Amino acid sequence: MLNKNYSKEHEEYLKKLKRRKMAIITVQILILILFFVQWEIMANLKIVDPFLVSQPSRMVKFLIKLYNEGTLFRHIGVTCYETIIGFVLGTIIGTIIAILLWASDFISKVLDPYLVVLNALPKIALGPIIIFWVGNGQPAIIAIALMISLIVTIISVSSGFKEVDKDKIKLLQTFGASKLQILRYVVLPSSIPTMISALKINVGLSWVGVIVGEFLVAQEGLGFLIVFGGQVAQLDMVMLSIIILSVAAYLMYEIVAIFERKYLRWRG
């Protein structure tokens, strides 16, 4: 009887959570629709200048134009490809370097001030140097994205490693465990939440790096459309590119969030 009552209460609780989630999603969609409708109305009534801020109907027309020209998905694909490559490389290389810093306390202390300086340095200032070293093309864009996300990954993951329970590490050391075993069985599993947080940060940083790189050297991509649209006073192109960029960045962030939820469900 108790189990039956508990199951019914639990079922009601789950339904309540589901209703709340649906309500949140509905309100979010309504806010978005209201925003675009208000934008369109204000532009039609000349409350805002459509030339300066564009309007949804004009962006839709330009979207159809790009699609008919066969360039829409090419621009989106180029930017997404560069972002994914920069994101993956930044995450993998940053994690490997963080592991090396954890493995050697001496190297960690030596490199610590350099990491602080590199993290504080505006990476865009190094853009022209990267272009000169790597070349004027996709490799330079990916290198800039990697440079922007790499240092943050190293610092974030290293901080997560340092927060691992010292008693667990000492216990394994007492039993004669090697550093590799400690890393595998204690440090990495305990640091997965931190690493997922680093992934979330890297999503935004990778997009920033790619767009900055495309501003400087690209001949295609969303960053190129934004720069070119600004140069020829095509604000429809600029605003449409920004909206597509926002949607793509959100979807990439959601993929990381889905991975996080699956991990938490498996762990819990």
Score class of each variant (00 low, 15 high):
residue 125 A to K: 11
residue 126 L to E: 06
residue 127 G to R: 04
residue 128 P to M: 01
residue 128 P to W: 01
residue 129 I to P: 03
residue 132 F to G: 12
residue 134 V to P: 06
residue 134 V to A: 05
residue 135 G to T: 05
residue 136 N to W: 15
residue 137 G to F: 05
residue 137 G to N: 12
residue 138 Q to H: 15
residue 143 A to V: 08
residue 144 I to K: 09
residue 145 A to C: 12
residue 146 L to Y: 01
residue 146 L to R: 00
residue 147 M to K: 01
residue 149 S to H: 08
residue 150 L to G: 10
residue 151 I to W: 04
residue 151 I to Y: 09
residue 153 T to H: 10
residue 157 V to F: 02
residue 158 S to E: 10
residue 159 S to F: 05
residue 159 S to Q: 09
residue 161 F to T: 07
residue 162 K to M: 08
residue 163 E to I: 07
residue 164 V to Q: 08
residue 164 V to Y: 06
residue 165 D to S: 12
residue 165 D to Q: 14
residue 166 K to C: 11
residue 167 D to F: 14
residue 167 D to I: 15
residue 169 I to K: 02
residue 169 I to S: 01
residue 170 K to V: 13
residue 172 L to S: 05
residue 173 Q to R: 10
residue 174 T to F: 15
residue 175 F to N: 08
residue 176 G to V: 04
residue 179 K to E: 07
residue 180 L to Y: 14
residue 180 L to V: 15
residue 182 I to R: 13
residue 183 L to R: 11
residue 183 L to H: 10
residue 184 R to S: 13
residue 185 Y to K: 07
residue 185 Y to A: 03
residue 186 V to K: 09
residue 188 L to S: 06
residue 190 S to L: 13
residue 190 S to A: 14
residue 191 S to G: 00
residue 192 I to K: 14
residue 194 T to R: 15
residue 197 S to C: 07
residue 197 S to T: 07
residue 199 L to V: 02
residue 200 K to S: 13
residue 202 N to C: 06
residue 206 S to M: 12
residue 206 S to Y: 07
